[in-house]
Simulated assay, not measured.
Amino acid sequence: MAAKEAPKQRDAEATKGRILSAAKVEFAKNGLAGARVDEIADRAKANKRMIYHYFGNKDDLFQAVLEEAYVDIRTAEQKLELDHLPPREALEKLVRFTWQYYLKNPEFITLVNSANLHKARHLKHSKVIEVVSRKFVTMVGGLLDRGVAEGVFRPGIDPVQLNITIAAIGYYYLTNRFTGSIVFERDLTAPEALDERLQFNIDTVLRLVCITP
């Protein structure tokens, strides 16, 4: 019996994976309100009944997409293995990673924007978000403690505030790069401009955290 159930289980997981991938594209493009379940079903090569069976309603599917998005970035951060690097080098690697992740995964930013439009009601009771977020804060807190112990970082820095700052200085630039290019009369999307901004982000965070930048 188990041998017969295994292929069905694999098929179910594959279908759920296709639905999540299709939903991420649709929600990132059109937001929760504008996303259409029919479009998600077509893109996933599934039917609406399967979507409702696996995920419930559209709000539940949106929550699943958000959870997967946060798990993805938090998992990638854990794989950086920052505890194996000197504190200053580890912090720079985290800043660099955050910037590059946003560039490579623009849908993450649009999904977060959409979640905030709905006051994060889809995440308020998510155990998934709670677990991965606490693990990340613990990781950053450990990095800061290690830097303080080695006389490299200033004491008393809140890991949550630091993460908000690292995210914000990249997030704001990228979400406003098109309007900013007009307002500041320079192409903020050019490769050299992106490189310049990354270095500015790194310098800013190091000056904030390090005793000697």
Rank of each mutant, 00 (worst) to 15 (best):
P7S: 03
S21Q: 15
V25N: 07
E39P: 09
A33V: 10
K8Y: 09
A14Q: 15
V37M: 13
E26C: 04
R10V: 05
G34T: 01
N30K: 15
G31F: 02
A33S: 12
V37Y: 06
G31K: 00
P7Q: 01
G17S: 15
E13R: 14
V37H: 02
S21T: 13
E26K: 00
R18V: 07
A22K: 04
A28P: 09
K29S: 14
I40M: 12
A22M: 05
A12G: 09
Q9F: 13
G17P: 10
E39T: 12
A14D: 10
G34L: 04
A33W: 12
P7E: 04
A33L: 09
N30P: 08
K29I: 08
D38I: 13
G34M: 11
A35K: 01
T15V: 14
S21C: 01
S21Y: 12
F27S: 03
A22H: 11
I19P: 06
K24Q: 14
F27N: 15
Q9H: 04
V25E: 11
R10G: 01
R36I: 03
G17T: 15
A28E: 10
I19C: 11
P7C: 02
K24L: 15
V25A: 13
K16W: 11
R10C: 03
A23S: 05
P7G: 05
K8S: 13
V37N: 04
G31S: 00
A33G: 04
P7M: 08
R36N: 11
G31D: 02
K24A: 15
L32A: 03
E13F: 08
Q9K: 11
A28M: 05
I19Y: 02
A12L: 13
I40T: 05
L32H: 03
A23N: 09
R18K: 14
R10L: 06
K29M: 05
S21R: 10
G17L: 09
L32V: 02
G34W: 02
R36M: 14
F27T: 03
E26S: 04
G34D: 00
A14N: 15
A22N: 06
T15H: 06
R18S: 10
T15S: 11
A12N: 09
D38E: 08
G31H: 13
K29G: 08
L20C: 05
A14W: 03
A28D: 04
G31V: 00
V37A: 05
S21A: 13
K16G: 03
T15K: 13
R18N: 15
R18H: 15
S21E: 10
E13C: 03
A35Q: 02
Q9M: 14
P7K: 13
K24C: 08
A35V: 03
R10K: 12
N30E: 09
